[in-house]
Design a binder for these strands. Structure first.
Lengths: 200, 200
DNA sequence: TACTTATTTGGACAATCGTCCAACAGGCTA
DNA sequence: TAGCCTGTTGGACGATTGTCCAAATAAGTA
């Protein structure tokens, strides 16, 4: 039918450019230059720029699902799996320092543009939220699993935002360390529901 | 010399539009329509769009300084003052739900645009950081005051980002409650330096 | 009153945006 | 070979962008 490589190259380049420079700030010409095709060729694969965004989000959704599945196979305990999530901050710290969190910044931009693909971008967050929720439930925190998932998500977002603004690596390291310690307490059942630890 | 009201109206309208729709997505025409002046009149007060951004940031810096000074006068204890900061999330929850944090989203956008005013936007964050740092020092946490300040900033940013994405009010309420409890522990000297609480 | 300065107007400008298409190249089948 | 399908090209299009200015108006001074 169709040679998928060109379409894939477009989506791949758009994905990176949207992350690095933002969706609106990225033009057709920018993507065309990156893929080294003519500007007119886009219309053969995508009707509008918004269609490219949808394709990019779809790819990100698929990649995220694959990553979460992999973590579920690799991590022997729920705590280990949650730790895998937290440690993306370390793994991707170079990119985060330069461009922030790809999920958070995309959602923030689409909110300002009042863009039609906001729900799909939010689904990206929902993927992590539900996965984390599941892991906390397995940890025996069924009652407040979602609250804990949101808490971890919020921390990660905040750390990414500040690391980006202040261009600070060690801040990431420090906050991840704290989250690891916090997670260990949760895993040991030492933190009361929905409340911070209280010293006896 | 010059009637400042027109200039002030421009900056005021630009401030709001930049927050609601983003800097790049806001055009001269948008601002002109809001202020009800002709598009050409901008050049009398500002040479470029970037100059308007600088003016907007300057106003935000001044307003923020005034707010922090006020909190310092009102709050009788450092803990009360820090609580004032945390509770912006509640006070401004309607705007945060719709547009996110004005400081965080501006910094995120300028980072992607690789904009020249990034440092000035970061100074907006620095204002909060230094003020919080001072309050934690007064609380007797001189050694890790800045780390605690960054931690509070990060939490606030993460909460704002997720509240915006998920359009969730109660999430803000819940996280603020947790931060209040955490702050109370810090104020009572019950949380070890740079580490989460450890149950005996 | 006249003259000067301060402010505002509406449109010109070059560039860029997303969109769209007629023409063309290359490979495959008949 | 001739015809057809799949991909690709480069540029036209109307709209919009930020910038800039000559002219008109308002305000203030002599």
């Amino acid at each position: 039918m169709s040679d998928k490589s060109t379409r894939d190259h477009i989506v791949e380049a758009a994905d990176q450019l949207f992350y690095h420079n933002g969706f609106e700030h990225t033009s057709f010409s920018d993507i065309a230059d990156a893929v080294k095709i003519s500007r007119g060729n886009f219309y053969y694969y995508f009707k509008t720029k918004d269609d490219i965004l949808e394709a990019v989000i779809d790819v990100r959704l698929a990649k995220t699902r694959a990553m979460l599945d992999q973590w579920e196979r690799d991590g022997r305990t729920p705590a280990e799996r949650i730790r895998s999530f937290i440690h993306i901050l370390i793994t991707n710290r170079a990119d985060i320092k330069q461009y922030g969190c790809p999920v958070g910044t995309l959602n923030a931009e689409l909110a300002k543009l009042d863009h039609g693909s906001r729900p799909e971008a939010a689904a990206l967050f929902m993927l992590f939220r539900n996965w984390l929720c599941k892991q906390f439930a397995l940890l025996g925190r069924k009652r407040d699993a979602d609250a804990l998932a949101m808490h971890v998500l919020a921390m990660s977002q905040g750390v990414a935002t500040l690391a980006n603004t202040f261009q600070d690596d060690r801040f990431i390291q420090r906050e991840v360390q704290q989250m690891d310690d916090w997670l260990a307490l949760i895993a040991d059942g030492e933190v009361p529901t929905s409340r911070p630890a209280r010293v006896n």
